[in-house]
């Protein structure tokens, strides 16, 4: 029984740390708990903590609390856990198998590979085109995007608030764009904009909306506030550089 409780708790914890919506966390816990043979499963998930109690059919209750201190956005993990919980519910995999797979996933954070940086740069270039920048401006934005993703990857290893990480990235982007403008005749605004767009808190923003919609008021509001604080961080970073030395 202890093993089953641990497995369900681990699945919920992993989903929370990689940025899943609350209803998905609670639904997964419920589905896995019921398939594991518990009579009743109650869970309450918030972005910073998870509470769950599992009732057995002979009247015992297992209750666990797990504090979530760190979270990141990794959609592949959500998809993976979704697949694991589906196959467990349909009885295709054993508890041991599920537990080892979950433990393996726990070690993964956000992958820091070169392809991710390169695609981030491409994204910055694409945003510059979307905001009607020219080819050369898109190229510069792409290079800047790559650099700020690299910096933010390094900063994420330290306990720095997300808003500050975003602010540093945005300040570097604005500074580099201004520097490039000294050499070339380009529109710095389009470049800075394209580069900082890749810092936008996409997952947090979308899950905030979806949480609100499914009646998860607590996490909807807290995630909305988190997205807002990151957006303010980006704006602050750019504003500091822009207000230095006029235009």
């Amino acid at each position: 029984m202890e093993k089953l409780v641990g497995m369900v708790l681990l699945a919920g914890e992993l989903l929370l740390t990689c940025g899943a919506e609350m209803y998905r966390v609670e639904e997964t816990i419920e589905r896995m708990g019921i398939s594991a043979g518990f009579a009743q499963v109650e869970s309450f998930a918030t972005p910073t903590g998870l509470f769950l109690s599992l009732h057995t059919s002979d009247g015992r209750v297992y209750t666990r609390v797990r504090r979530i201190r760190r979270s990141f956005s990794n959609l592949a993990l959500i998809s993976e856990i979704n697949a694991i919980s589906r196959s467990f519910s349909s009885g295709e995999t054993t508890i041991e198998d599920v537990t080892t797979r979950l433990k393996g996933l726990k070690k993964e954070g956000v992958p820091h590979n070169f392809l991710r940086l390169l695609m981030g740069g491409m994204g910055a270039a694409a945003f510059t085109v979307l905001y009607s920048g020219s080819g050369i401006e898109a190229l510069i934005a792409g290079i800047i995007g790559l650099i700020i993703l690299l910096i933010d990857n390094k900063l994420e290893d330290y306990p720095i608030p997300n808003a500050l990480v975003a602010a540093v990235g945005a300040a570097v982007a604005a500074g580099l764009a201004k520097g490039a403008a000294l050499l070339l005749t380009i529109n710095t605004n389009v470049i800075t904009l394209g580069a900082v767009m890749i810092l936008a808190p996409g997952v947090v923003m979308t899950t905030a909306i979806r949480d609100m919609l499914s009646g998860e008021l607590v996490s909807g509001v807290t995630r909305g506030a988190e997205a807002l604080s990151i957006a303010v961080g980006i704006a602050t970073g750019v504003a500091i550089i822009l207000s230095m030395g006029g235009n």
Partner: peptide
């Protein structure tokens, strides 16, 4: 070009947030 840029920026975000490769 803009629609193509929309495509590329979505793909870029898919990489940044580590969407499964098949999707």
């Amino acid at each position: 070009v803009q629609v193509l840029a929309g495509f590329v920026s979505a793909v870029a975000f898919a990489f940044i947030y580590n969407v499964p490769r098949s999707e």
